[in-house]
Design a protein around this nucleic acid. Sequence first.
RNA 1: GGCCUCGUCGUCUAGUCAGGCCUAGGACACAAGGUUUUCAACCUUGUAACAGGGGUUCAAAUCCCCUCGAGGCCGCCA
Length: 508
Amino acid sequence: MLQNPSVRVRYAPSPTGEPHIGNIRTALFNWLFARHWRGRFILRIEDTDRARIAFGSLEKIIESLNWLGLDWDEGATKVKNKLKSLGPHRPYVQSERLEIYRRYVEELLEKEKAYRCFCLPERLEKMRKEQLAQGRAPMYDGRCRELIKIKKSKNFVIRLKVPQKGKVEFKDLIRGKVEFESKNIDDQVLLKSDGWPTYHLASVIDDHLMKITHVIRGEEWLSSAPKHLLLYQAFGWQPPQFAHLPIILGLDRSKLSKRHGAISILEYKEQGYLPEALINFMVLLGWSPKIDRIKGKKEKEIFSREELIKKFSLDDVQKSPAVFNAEKLNWMNGYYIRQLNLEELTKKCLPYLQDKYFPDKILIRSSVPIYKYVKKIVALEQERIKKLSEIVELTNFFFAEKLNYDSSLLKWKKMTKEEIVGNLNLALKKLIGLKEKEFKRRKIKEILMKIAEKTGTGELLWPFRVALTGRETSPGPFEIAEALGKERVIKRIKEAIKLAESDLDKLM
RNA sequence: GGCCUCGUCGUCUAGUCAGGCCUAGGACACAAGGUUUUCAACCUUGUAACAGGGGUUCAAAUCCCCUCGAGGCCGCCA
């Protein structure tokens, strides 16, 4: 594999909520890029907007990354108690680096690349409205640009002095050459009146100090990129390479966001999506591997983590935005579930089952007898579930003491009540004669199929299966019978017979 | 409204940079058939797209121009 240890990338979320597909996909691409080149992946928390910080979201970010296995390689050396639990490398946190940003903004002031602006928010707001009304892009008018006397007021912001002529152009790794005219670039606020830096200032300084080589981020940042380039110029720094990822759209075709129904990554976790499936699905949103395609031949879309690392390249990233549609994710998750070995799947399903069916009992472990029962049940549903959480609903008949279903369900096609009762009785008589040890799917099948030669297959198996499950759809009856065990099977058949007999009208 | 970006099946995409191998390939979804007591899984088949219009060329999904459409940004948010 190619190596380039100098590659350094970062994921820089702000702790304003729980990460969703839109955010975390950026982390994934950065991570894959770093791992592909054997470079470094850095996590940096951008918490410079104190008003928008959401309690607990830092932990949610960490939990999401951990769950997906997107590990980062370095972090701040100073460890504060409250963050000790966050893993081997505590992320960099911007709120701890304020002194750094202030120092650099002084430098900008001295170099006259930035200036203090004393304009009041009210004036700016009014100006924006007027500009908009005139059909112009709202921009700062530069009133404080050349102030000679500095006002005494402490209430000011520091703005970037954007050159009035010329243009800013750069080569985006995904989009190619992109250019902006300086006159269209606003004098961006760098330091807010509360003394905190804006994203633009803090991220440029941090990217420089952290020696970030590739800034891989969402397309929503594309129009800010020239401001960042200008900042690098002002400082006299070498800018990193930029790669602006296509944005992910919701079903309404607007940027995926919490407001537009984006689901938190941790929500996917709870619903029982497997991290590998989610990663596989996400990576295909905006990227597809370069492979030798053979016409008409089916193409593989399932990739292991290692394959992704090996194949990932920014060259193969799509330019156009992708609509997020969960259908394929569901299929993929089902596929990954089917590939799991039974032991793994059982362990993953256990918490869901435990929660619903054994809330009071002690934890079910592989040493407990009931674990064997659960394992048998899980085996029967493996190819049917798309998410782990579905295991609960699908298996309730295994845990129910008494089934509750309508007698008409026992009827296969045009069977009469007598036939149903008769056929179930035939099955009952034969099965009752089986020893506990013989109560295996093969033996049960052998016996029932023999009966079915006379009764008809559907006429026997349908009522039999309904008797055991109370459901219209389920796994095969022989496996179910084995899993339930003789005692329960006999009891349920008897109950079904009773139900059919007691029924006066429905079965006529 | 201004600036920027993007436009291939319903959705994710291959093909576009280096025009012909494209009667445009694959995946999901959908439909039909097979298997089957039901559901699922699996197998086979099918429906379905180069936004539109002009160029350039022997030849255009691919290059150029225009139109249309979609998205992003336009905060002392990130």
